[in-house]
Design a protein around this nucleic acid. Structure first.
Length: 728
RNA sequence: GCCAGCAUAGCUUCAAUUGGCAGAGCACCGCUUUCGUAAAGCGGGGGUUGUGGGUUCGACUCCCACUGCUGGCUCCA
């Protein structure tokens, strides 16, 4: 006897095994027709799934109204898209085709590359397939049979996946629809007609199982909805989001530029962008003072030995600008040294290659031997001589991180336990050589400035200091109305050996990190494998306007650098102890943070951040003299103000100021000049009427001090809808 | 780095029949207008069509290489 409990609490009993479809039919023919899938005890399954013949289950029958059904339908749509591609292009190999947020994709290996111009044909073929309205038929087989099926189909990726990724699964399932059969966990919609409106969106490269060592596949992105209206709305949303893109707004509003001549990934802060940044930096500096940090300054480069000690070199070699050496021989042999440090070259080979390049160098530059090898010297002796020479080299690296410099500041004096924690803060510029394909506007650059700080404390202070860092990050994000973030605790991947430091030290760090997050009541996800090589961390991750995630603020515990640099302090027992370090940056980098901020505010910054807070616009040139006086008065009061005195009509000047997203306009005509007033105009609320310049100053200053969020707009720069309701 | 696509004036607004004189709009400059809350009128300057080669009588257009940019590169069958 099976007892089925439905969402409304009612229960039905069945004497023998029954499918979800049969239960739906029992409830009503309309429900049976509308059913897309079922949910049994919280697990989404196909409509033809048979329930056990005894016990008790909770059952939901999912229809178009249920969000879970959409994912099922999209997955089915992915199959249909794959089927369409298989029909159009012979010899396509199938890889993965999952549902993702906002749609789905399918990875193929194509004999001929797919192109965007193939999309209409694919969509047309999908239409034909859907018109057939064939059912999705589930076929369950054992592993060996599954392997045979995939081999027969000639689907090599499926064969590989069954033998590796699915090695633990004794029984596997396929779904068949017409001539198309695909290894698939399911579930699927009952038949093709359940698929509503769909669109193939884009094509991209993707590696098999995400590993760059594997074959590069072609990934076809698409989306599907139950109704055309939902699809249209989705596409419209994508379009609107694109208009918020910080790269577009950054150019339109004159915030930043990236010039080919300066170099890719190198950001030029235009005056207005620099103004926003400077304001944000002031804000952070104020918070640092309140929290007893000490500002420091350090240079942009450091000797390579410093980074060998820290472990950044050659560990991060691939993502750094190459070091520069004062000795020209080193320019030629630096790759050799890097390979040697990484263990890619053994001692004998290292000596051989070095001596050859050294000989070439001497031939080319006419310099005599400078290492002084005797003919009888051993490999070991030569290696020692070479390494000794290397360590004497004057070589510099553009700093990829600020910590080694800050550590040297810590070491500049003997530290007592009484002065801990030491908190050293700097807006430190760092350089990292990101791969070209990773660069993205301001959110991924090669040179950036972190709102960095390093805390040196005793082990028993870690929890309090960590807590303080998290609290500051939360405070800063709150002040900007950035609420759409998640906290990710990056932990060590137990299976990997890329980490510096002992497992025991890591466990301690991770435990205390988790403890603090729990105490602060933060929701977080613990993610093994996401840690930095030197310690676990808490990352604040936000989502940009087109759904990409970016790591902003970060707090990282580090038990390893103090060890590497032999940091010490004198304890109460008059003995030497090792401090613990915390790296933290609430904003992360100024570049990325402001990039995200531009999208968050859609370019319409709150008054306290706005590069131009107000603009005087004259009705005609008659009032220019008075207007200039007002402008200067507000400037002297500390407001960022400009004046538009062009011989344009008022409407044109207002329009220009609106498009530049300037929060306030001070309209001045003969009437104002006569009465000693200004007509204040809010960018969104329009004309607020006349007031004295002093009253305007008071009003604006109050808004600045309160750091009020302003409305942005529900459109884009240039397409603003008046009275937009996007309240932040 | 890799896959696909793109590159015309300051502009992520774009045009240029099959290979046949590179053209608009916005912005900029000048003149007229002196104006009260989202675009006044007229005139003007601005280009080695991303860079370098090639094919051709002739290349923005076709071919090759390079540079830069855009989308993407495991929320597993």
């Amino acid at each position: 006897m099976l007892k089925v409990i439905l969402p409304n609490g009612s229960a039905k009993e069945f004497p023998q095994s029954v499918s979800i479809r049969q239960i739906a039919e029992g409830i009503g023919p309309r429900l049976a027709k509308a059913a897309i899938a079922g949910e049994v005890d919280g697990k989404v399954v196909g409509i033809d799934t048979r329930l056990p013949d005894s016990g008790e289950v909770k059952l939901r029958i999912l229809t178009k109204k249920d969000p879970e059904a959409l994912a099922v339908m999209r997955h089915s749509a992915a199959h249909i898209m794959a089927r369409a591609v298989m029909r159009l292009k012979k010899g396509a190999q199938l890889a993965f085709g999952p549902t993702v947020e906002g749609g789905f994709y399918y990875d193929f290996q194509m004999p001929e590359p797919l192109r965007e111009e193939d999309f209409p044909a694919i969509e047309a073929e999908m239409k034909k397939i859907i018109a057939l309205d064939e059912p999705f038929e589930r076929i369950e087989v054992d592993r060996n049979k599954a392997l045979d099926i995939c081999k027969d189909l000639g689907q090599e990726y499926k064969v590989e996946h069954i033998s590796t990724g699915l090695a633990e699964h004794p029984s596997l399932s396929f779904y068949r629809q017409g001539e198309f059969i695909d290894l698939c966990r399911g579930p699927h919609v009952p038949s093709a007609s359940a698929i509503g409106a769909y669109k193939v969106l884009s094509i991209a490269g993707a590696y098999w199982k995400g590993d760059a060592n594997n074959a590069q596949l072609q990934r076809l992105y698409a989306t599907a909805f139950f109704s055309q209206e939902d699809l249209d709305e989705h596409l419209k949303k994508i379009e609107e989001a694109k208009r918020r893109d910080h790269r577009l707004l950054g150019k339109q509003l004159g915030l930043f530029a990236i010039s080919q001549e300066v170099g890719p990934g190198l950001c030029l802060w235009l005056p207005k962008g620099a103004q926003v940044r400077s304001q944000l930096e002031e804000f952070i500096k104020h918070e640092l003072r309140n929290r007893n940090y000490q500002p420091v300054y350090t240079p942009h480069i450091g000797r390579i030995q410093l980074y060998q000690t820290s472990g950044h070199f050659p560990y991060y070699m691939d993502s750094q600008f190459p070091p520069f050496y004062l000795d020209p021989l080193m320019q030629d042999t630096q790759h050799l040294f890097a390979a040697h440090f990484k263990g890619d070259v053994n001692d004998q080979k290292f000596v051989d290659i070095f001596e050859k390049s050294s000989a070439d160098f001497q031939k080319n530059f006419g310099v005599s031997s400078f290492l002084g090898f005797g003919p009888a010297s051993t490999v070991e002796e030569r290696k020692v001589a070479i390494m000794h020479w290397f360590n004497e080299q004057e070589a510099y690296l553009l700093k990829p991180m600020n910590c080694p410099h800050h550590i040297q500041i810590y070491r500049a004096e003997r530290r007592s336990y009484k002065e801990l924690p030491v908190r050293l803060a700097e807006f430190g510029s760092v350089y990292r050589f990101e791969k070209t394909g990773q660069l993205n506007g301001m959110t991924r650059v090669r040179g950036f400035t972190q709102d960095d700080a390093h805390l040196f404390c005793m082990e028993e202070q870690v929890a309090a200091e960590f807590s303080g860092c998290i609290e500051m990050t939360q405070f800063v994000l709150d002040c900007l109305g950035l609420t759409n973030y998640r906290v990710r605790l990056g932990f060590r991947d137990p299976a990997s050996d890329k980490y510096v430091g002992s497992q025991e030290v890591w466990n301690r760090a991770q435990a205390s990190l988790e403890e603090v997050c729990t105490r602060l009541g933060m929701s977080y996800t613990a993610e093994p494998g996401e840690a930095a090589f030197y310690g676990p961390k808490a990352d604040f991750v936000v989502t940009d306007c087109i759904g990409r995630e970016w790591q902003l603020g970060t707090v990282q515990l580090d038990y390893n650098l103090p060890e590497r640099f032999q940091l010490e302090f004198v304890g109460a027992d008059n003995k030497m102890h090792r401090p613990v370090m915390i790296h933290r940056a609430p904003l992360g980098s100024m570049e990325r943070f402001i990039g995200v901020l531009i999208e968050h505010f859609a370019g319409a910054f709150p008054l306290w951040l706005a590069p131009e807070q107000a603009r005087v616009v004259t009705v005609s040139e008659k009032s220019e003299e008075y207007a200039r006086g007002v402008e200067q008065k507000l400037r002297t009061a500390g407001l960022r103000i400009t004046g538009d005195y062009r011989p344009e009509k008022l409407g044109a000047k207002i329009r220009d100021a609106q498009l530049e997203l300037i929060p306030y306009m001070l309209v001045i005509g003969p009437r104002d000049a006569e009465q000693g007033t200004v007509s204040i105009r809010d960018r969104l609320d329009g004309d607020l009427g006349a007031m004295t310049p002093d009253a305007a100053i008071t009003k604006l200053q109050a808004e600045i001090t309160a750091r009020t969020f302003r409305k942005t707009f529900s459109g884009s720069a240039g397409l603003e809808v008046k009275g937009g309701e996007n309240e932040y």
